[in-house]
């Protein structure tokens, strides 16, 4: 799987309340989450996520276990999230809902520049430099390849 998109840079320690606020959770309508994603961090982010690769700092997705957070990012059209480290529940949730999350150190984010990701070959390319990515466990790879845990479960 090779992915690419324009970088959208966000900071470190972005908690899931900032990804999608609690006040938008009481619905099953995923378009509501997409519309309000990152609203409390920067309301101008949501419309820029279509086809984007989000580049975050350390500890992306810390805090609550709300799965609406990766779903909101996916529904807003982002193709992947890259960070040096992720909070573990967010990381599991993202894979489970089919949102590629990539652990990668040292990537310098330039807003709007092109980022290319090769999951098979294990690298991210940005600003003409290739950075290695930490591989997923075989089971997580299988879940992500299936498009998420629901399809993985149905297909097995």
């Amino acid at each position: 799987m090779t992915l690419s998109g324009k970088a959208v840079c966000i900071g470190a320690d972005i908690d899931t309340d900032l990804v999608i606020a609690g006040r938008y959770l009481r619905t099953k309508d995923t378009s509501v989450w997409a519309e309000h994603v990152f609203e409390d961090l920067d309301p101008s982010l949501a419309p820029r996520l279509k086809g984007a690769v989000i580049v975050a700092g350390n500890n992306m997705g810390c805090g609550s276990s709300r799965e609406q957070a990766p779903v909101a990012i996916r529904e807003a059209g982002a193709v992947a999230v890259i960070a040096p480290s992720f909070a573990r529940i967010f990381f599991r949730n993202a894979i489970n809902v089919g949102l590629p999350v990539i652990e990668c150190d040292g990537l310098v984010c330039a807003d709007g520049s092109t980022v290319i990701i090769s999951m098979e070959e294990g690298w991210v390319e940005a600003g003409g430099i290739r950075y290695p990515i930490r591989p997923l466990s075989p089971k997580m790879q299988d879940i992500l390849s299936a498009g998420g845990l629901v399809s993985y479960w149905r297909n097995r």
């Binding site: 529940i89 599991r92 845990l149």
Partner: peptide
Amino acid sequence: ADSHSCTTGALGAFSTGMGATDMAAIWA
């Protein structure tokens, strides 16, 4: 299916939080 599920580690259990889809798979 809540991040603070680590609470009952106080009883010497391995107790942890996961998301909703992981929970659904555990039910199944």
